[in-house]
């Protein structure tokens, strides 16, 4: 199973990811904050984390650093608004695999995910 963890404070973004990726055969876990995401990562292994950059309690960059520190195998795709594109570039330097911009279409999301796993069967 290709396990994906979605970390985003916005419910509609989480749902969008779920509804786009689950039908494609991905095992999607949804969390609403960085803390929750880290908690999930501690319990089980995920191949990919879709991580929002701008969150209220724990910043996306902080979460990214923790993931890269503790689970280096896990790939991270940053989800960002355009205004934080600078941070996205920084994120790529820190170790993010890629970034996509909000609002994304299901195709954009799938493409980014497929780049990580390779095309689904």
């Amino acid at each position: 199973m290709k396990k994906i963890l979605v970390v985003d404070d916005e419910a509609i973004v989480r749902t969008s990811c779920d509804r786009t990726l689950t039908p494609e055969g991905y095992d999607v876990t949804l969390t609403a904050s960085g803390k929750e995401g880290i908690a999930c990562l501690e319990k089980e292994t995920f191949a990919l984390v879709l991580l929002d950059l701008k969150m209220p309690d724990m910043d996306g960059m902080e979460v990214l650093s923790k993931i890269k520190e503790n689970w280096p195998e896990t790939k991270v795709v940053m989800v960002t608004g355009y205004s934080t594109v600078d941070t996205a570039v920084q994120a790529l330097r820190v170790g993010a695999y890629n970034f996509i911009e909000k609002p994304f279409t299901p195709d954009t999301l799938l493409k980014a995910v497929q780049e990580v796993f390779g095309p689904s069967d």
Binding site: E10, I12, V13, T15, S16, R19, T20, G81, K102, P103, F104, T105, P106, D107, L109
Partner: peptide, 14 residues
């Protein structure tokens, strides 16, 4: 607005 817009786009596609 980007967040709800993501929802609109995604669900329109679905």
């Amino acid at each position: 607005i980007n967040n709800p817009l993501t929802g609109v786009v995604t669900f329109a596609h679905l």
